[in-house]
């Protein structure tokens, strides 16, 4: 009975995903301009947020390295711009991010709690400055040009990467590694003594999440003709996914996507309507949501749903 329920849930989720994918895939045929541009932005942040949640959600290790891998994707796009096809470029960025994250992870994942967060934060600054210096000495320039790709091309690329990210996140959550990651987050020492190779599990998951960050970077880089280290390795890229995940809720994968979408959309509205008060209002919205929605928008919605149904369990 339980198994049947599980497979039914699985096929419902898969069906919903396919429908969502089709709708999003057909969208540019019916609309253009602003909506597609907005969706590119939303999908970008959805990729970064879901990828961040893959590792930091279950383990509780707060990574602020997102901008490092995303920016690496920018630079892969710039360096190989025009020499390799766009899809290959994206894969190359994913692979580079994976390799760099393996190295960084092996060095830093022995650190716990706030030390890990600080180190990953510093990593972004370190990479930024290294690239800045290398460019100054080697190419004697500050920035680089990137060959642009059509808006539609970018849209489809980020859409595919988004679904790959969701798929990977779902597979990891449901696999044995999902349980390993959860137990590491709950009590790392007990996980290690129960037979989990905690170092390898953490490093591999960290690197896997970096793949999608790198790919997103390579795609979005083509939206700009010019990049430099300050654009590529922007710390906002590290902080926003964290806020979006908190805003949406991390209980399941709908939360981070919802968080990224709402957050980006609200930000867009505030920026266009109240350009002067943008940051102020945004700050207040954030504080209120963290104070009153500890489980994010999704948690709040589930709570309301539960109340309406009179104490039953909300679907998760």
């Amino acid at each position: 009975m339980k198994a049947i329920q599980m497979t039914r849930d699985k096929s419902v989720t898969l069906g919903l995903l396919i429908v969502a994918f089709l709708i999003l895939a057909l969208l540019p045929q019916f609309t253009s301009g602003y909506l597609v541009t907005l969706l590119i932005d939303i999908l970008k942040f959805a990729v970064l947020t879901v990828a961040w949640v893959v590792f930091s959600g279950p383990t509780g290790y707060m990574s602020l390295a997102t901008a490092a891998f995303y920016g690496l994707g920018f630079y892969i796009a710039a360096v190989f711009s025009g020499t390799v096809p766009f899809p290959l470029l994206i894969m190359l960025a994913g692979a580079s991010a994976f390799v760099v994250a393996l190295g960084v992870g092996a060095l830093t994942l022995r650190l716990r709690g706030v030390y890990f967060a600080i180190f990953t934060f510093a990593l972004v600054l370190l990479v930024q400055n290294v690239v800045l210096e290398v460019e100054r000495v080697v190419t004697q320039t500050r920035g680089r040009f990137v060959e642009t790709v059509s808006t539609e091309g970018v849209y489809y690329a980020i859409l595919i990467v988004f679904f790959l990210t969701i798929l990977a996140a779902m597979l990891i959550r449901r696999s044995r590694y999902g349980l390993a990651l959860q137990s590491i987050g709950e009590y790392e020492e007990a996980a290690a003594h129960s037979g989990i190779n905690v170092v390898w599990t953490k490093v591999l998951t960290f690197a896997t999440s970096a793949v999608f960050m790198g790919m997103a970077g390579a795609i979005i880089a083509t939206r700009r003709t010019y990049i430099d280290p300050y654009i590529a390795f922007n710390l906002n890229t590290s902080f926003l996914p964290v806020l979006m995940a908190m805003f949406g809720g991390m209980g399941n994968l709908v939360g981070p996507v919802l968080g990224a979408a709402l957050f980006t959309y609200i930000g867009e509205i505030l920026l266009t309507r109240f350009p002067d008060l943008y940051m102020l209002i945004f700050g207040v919205v954030l504080i209120v949501s963290i104070l009153f929605m500890p489980n994010g928008v999704l948690g709040l919605a589930q709570g309301v749903w539960r109340k309406m149904r009179g104490g039953g369990h909300a679907p998760s």
């Binding site: 959860q182 709950e186 020492e189 007990a190 996980a191 003594h193 129960s194 037979g195 989990i196």
Partner: peptide
């Protein structure tokens, strides 16, 4: 530690170290 465990030496802890938010059966399944 994980290799020691897989070799056949298991332990419990003086102050319990359980996976508090996971269901009991999941704890054991780890």
């Amino acid at each position: 530690p994980y290799k020691i465990c897989r070799l056949g030496i298991a332990r419990t802890f003086q102050t319990v170290k359980i996976f508090a938010h996971l269901p009991t059966v999941r704890n054991v399944m780890v």
